[in-house]
Design a protein around this nucleic acid. Sequence first.
DNA 1: TCGCCGCGCTAATACGTATTAGCATCTATG
DNA 2: CATAGATGCTAATACGTATTAGCGCGGCGA
Lengths: 348, 348
Amino acid sequence: MTTPPRRVTQRDIARMAGVSQATVSLVLNNRTDAEVRIAPETRDRVLRVIAETGYAADPVARRLASRFNRIIGVFTYEPAFPSGSRDFFHPFLLGIEEYAERVGCDLLLFTSAPVVDGRRRIFHHDNRLRLADGCILLGREIDGAELHRLNRDGYPYVAVGRRDDAGGPVPYVGADYASAVARLVEVALRRGHRRLTYLSMGTTAESSEDRLRGFRAAATTAESARQLSAPAGDAGTTLDTLMADGTTAVFVENFATAVALESAARRRGLAVPGDLSIVTLGDPTVPVPTDITFTGFRIPREEMGRQSVEVLTGVIDGSTGGLQQRLLPCELVEGSTLGTPDRAVDRR
Amino acid sequence: MTTPPRRVTQRDIARMAGVSQATVSLVLNNRTDAEVRIAPETRDRVLRVIAETGYAADPVARRLASRFNRIIGVFTYEPAFPSGSRDFFHPFLLGIEEYAERVGCDLLLFTSAPVVDGRRRIFHHDNRLRLADGCILLGREIDGAELHRLNRDGYPYVAVGRRDDAGGPVPYVGADYASAVARLVEVALRRGHRRLTYLSMGTTAESSEDRLRGFRAAATTAESARQLSAPAGDAGTTLDTLMADGTTAVFVENFATAVALESAARRRGLAVPGDLSIVTLGDPTVPVPTDITFTGFRIPREEMGRQSVEVLTGVIDGSTGGLQQRLLPCELVEGSTLGTPDRAVDRR
DNA sequence: TCGCCGCGCTAATACGTATTAGCATCTATG
DNA sequence: CATAGATGCTAATACGTATTAGCGCGGCGA
């Protein structure tokens, strides 16, 4: 166990070049202000030594002395495993990484954050937020109290997904669920559907609220537009309820529920969309095997990732030019599960 | 644009608790050595103030003063996009993340590293390696010169995948391709195959060498064991060559090539494995659609990720207890593309 | 000759923490 | 009562960089 060789510092460079440490720093940062000047030959000498030694400034000391670090933190709320939900988050990360690369930032994943009561916590006795210049918050449910705290501390952050105010507006880049759902409802209405049901997951997350709001806003001309909480894992009962009340098109918040519903329908000899149209409201959050392309929409995950970095950098350097809240449009997926209600209506 | 509120420091805590900054640090680090003692009531007082303010030590200052940072760097060599190859690397990252979480480390992705001549470079005028305590190197081809440099600088690192020495042994966690390929060859021999061909990708990466070595070592009892470099995108020609020389089983390094070969065979009315057995030697590095389960093996990617973190932490803290080079076994995949050579032999 | 100014650089300090030597104070002992 | 040792804490310093006030020097004008 040899003691590691001490790292080359600016002092070393300074000694070799016969100048002071301050001069090395000035040359390194290419300061050409009127305030401080370095003679070209001195500069060259220093640069030559730097090149010879392969010196690179210690980013840690640098950040301590100055203000920024060029590190973007990523905080993932969802429990890391099972890795299924990871596939859902992967596209966000791809987008984040792409944009981080473009702006020359490194990415810090806060994997050290401890899990308390089944949830990752940002704030704990040894939180390391300050390693990063700011932080991207990723996850379906984000603790409101922690958002409050972030706002209070003035720590730069941005949430992926719309969030309600938490002691001030929350910067976010979300998907415009409301209008995506509304557009799907309009399509269904145009095709003649009059009895619509919204099948919710029973959570109170903003993303759920938005979808439901879009549904209600667009379904005003329907004969019937009700909401139903889907008991997980009991597609049969749900199907009974839907058929009993004459629903012809069901809007399913949770992708897996839609798949289960379709299977249940097929088992009973019901056709989709012949007897029941099924519309999904977002990408699967866990991998669900299915050969069917459901009618619904796609969450622009990569783009959300990219733009969250963009917004964050704005928050960090305080250039509050643009609004720090963005909703991106979702692309509709044509699919094969939304038809006309004819057969379903005949059935009544 | 208000000036951001100055961060709470140990000095602030010290003032509030009526002690010195050093005392705060000592309490924080729970130092109970015989060297330095703090009275229980003092300790409690400090802890109470810390709890009230929600203070957490600045990790940057901490790392500057002490030695470690609890940050594991991840350097991805492959060009980040197209995202296809990302899917190949995702499992490694999952494993890395899982183990990093377990040991309480954050993960730093060096996305800021610039691309020079089509390759990411570790060393550049402003490399930020020192942000991390050590670094995991991920990528099919890793520049030998950079490994040399890492060794020379004594920077802790570990490569994912076996690497030849580079100015000293390279710590790595690799897959045991040689023995996986050898086992597949033995299976083929047991099933009666005597004319085997190894279809290489024409690269000189260690992973290719290892596979070929395993092939040669196990194929000694074969009638014919030759090697062929597959010209990309010309499966037809390759197939001709194979059939012309009586090959009954072909071992294909690149998964996509195997898929193309099978398609070409089917187009000609040849059966796989009836007329030609095809064995793949690893997971697809780019997504290739296919319904067939090829006989071959699986690279233990998640486990490699996990163990690379384990090895790295060993390298970092210098506890050079275990060897820093590990080869993990690959799991064979039964598949449906390796049969007996009967029909193929009859054809001759 | 003196004073002034612009140039090129350096000394000093700050950033926030960890660590160590050592200073008071107190207790026990002779 | 003097001394030794234990106890509890603080002052000082180091980590490596960025920043700023200001120093020495040479030239130039009066």
